[in-house]
Nucleic acid binder design. Sequence first.
RNA 1: UGGGGUGUCGCCAAGUUGGUAAGGCAUCAGAUUUUGAUUCUGACAUGCGUUGGUUCGAGUCCAGCCACCCCAGCCA
Length: 579
Amino acid sequence: MTDTSNPDHTLPSHFIRHMIDHDLASGKHDGRVQTRFPPEPNGFLHIGHAKSICLNFGLAEQYQGACNMRFDDTNPEKESQEFIDAIKADVNWLGFKWHGEVRYTSAYFQQLFDFALQLIRNGKAYVCSLTPEQAREYRGSLTEPGRNSPYRERSFEENLELFLRMQKGEFADGEHSLRAKIDMSSPNINMRDPIIYRIRNVEHHQTGDYWKVYPMYDYAHCISDALEHITHSLCTLEFEDHRPLYDWILNNLTLDSLKNACLELGNLPDDINYVLPEQTEFARLNINYNVMSKRKLKELVELGLVNGWDDPRMPTLSGLRRRGFTPASIRRFCDIIGMSRSESIVDVGMLEHCIREDLDEHSARAMCVLRPLKVTLINFTDEQAQTLSLPRHPKKDIGNRQIQFGPTLYIDETDFEQTPPPGYKRLSPGDEVRLRGAYVIKCEDVVRDQSGKVIELLCSLDPATLGQNPQGRKVKGVIHWVPAEGALRAEVRIYDRLFNNANPDDKVLGDFKNCLNPESLQVLTDCLVEPSLVSAAAEESFQFEREGYFCVDRFDSRPDALVFNRTVSLRDSWTKTNG
RNA sequence: UGGGGUGUCGCCAAGUUGGUAAGGCAUCAGAUUUUGAUUCUGACAUGCGUUGGUUCGAGUCCAGCCACCCCAGCCA
């Protein structure tokens, strides 16, 4: 990635790296680091997932280990192949390579089922026939212990028979469940005989209609980790209370059976010491002015409040991509936000900083006039027209672009002010300004329509100012422009934050949708871009000088009808302090 | 009022076995600049949720408070 051009960027230390260093020093996993990224394919990935992706894949890279890509697909009702495809595309786009083939928890359903049989045989699991409502009642509450299920002491023969019949499809959803026999009075509710298998008579996107019982996350995840010989199982804070269960499941299965299954799957080099995986939690990512929950993002999509999962205003990876964010900028962001166990809300300015940093260095410059205002040069004729050559980048030598300079051109409406405020450095009546890469011009007259709106500026040009400063006076400002001859019409989509409130999740708002920013999308259809942009490729990024960074929309832009998305504006210390 | 966590600058976040508060973002000031961009320079926590205690010395140890987050899906 572009990190190679930034030798200053060193990997920050954090508690997970410290832990791994410690494990490695003690020889715990024979010096191996095996991680995994385990999304459920029930939605699109967002920037919060990027944190996890960068962590898991990044750690594997740093320690010469490996990171598996695994779809945690134990709940067929909410999942689909569409999401699987989108997630794989996003991870690839971010630039990470997973170890071997893509894994699926569903590919372990048989092993998982066999391990359940083992638990039943050893009296560690039983079939419970309480209804969901009754089960909730028996579970107790946060402050009161639960009560044992009346089915808790069924014989193992009966449990075995019932569980087999559950899988045969003899029962309706919810009629029975398989539960781990742990402790109904545990202060940790996850340990009150958690359900590990439920009946679901539905088709699974990977396994079809073969299975009638599906394992729960807590049961499947730890075993899947063990089967893939994961050394460090990293997840977010809300799973902290699940860790005792993660360990309980693995510790109540025989180590040999786990190891053998792992060996059979080819996930364990036979000369290596088999150690069970351990779960470690980190804080999930929150960014102000954004929502990060899959449920809320899905709601925005389904209610049509945004134009799909890849709407450029969405914090999804596909949205950020379409907006013009680069994989390098997102990886960099994940690096600088750090890793800790304290819940925090990162300023969206950090993300903006990362994309500006990347695009400033790598994107070509170009000129685009968002709101065209005609300028006619009164002392310059068609015969004097010439071709100007401007560098594509102010610091890096990536060639030049050609621009026609003639007597008619366009500047931005906002670069002219009839009565300029103090400190104004643009064009105003009787004043001079430089046209970027060209001459200094002076506003001699203003043409208005009946309503008084300025529709044209008549300016004079100082022929001695091409490539050099005028004698005896200082010209304060530089503005961008586009030639009337050859400029291309373009649509430019300007995006603002999706929410007006820094914390859309705040309960006092009632609903997060109450603070949607009605002006988050502004479409400008009469923009003019310089001729060199005819050859702009889909997704290519440019800095439109003095405006910001823009990319060619990967879906809607055509050579004869260009569409640009503003990724982010330039930093601006002028409009920040003035209107 | 059960259990599990977290509290270091406006926002993130480092802080080895206690030794006298890294860095980034943002902000402010100045320099350079044919992008009010970039770049550069400088400023920005006697303070580490709070109250006590131990100590020559505490963000780091101890105790008590306070605040916030997570958990009662046959979701993940």
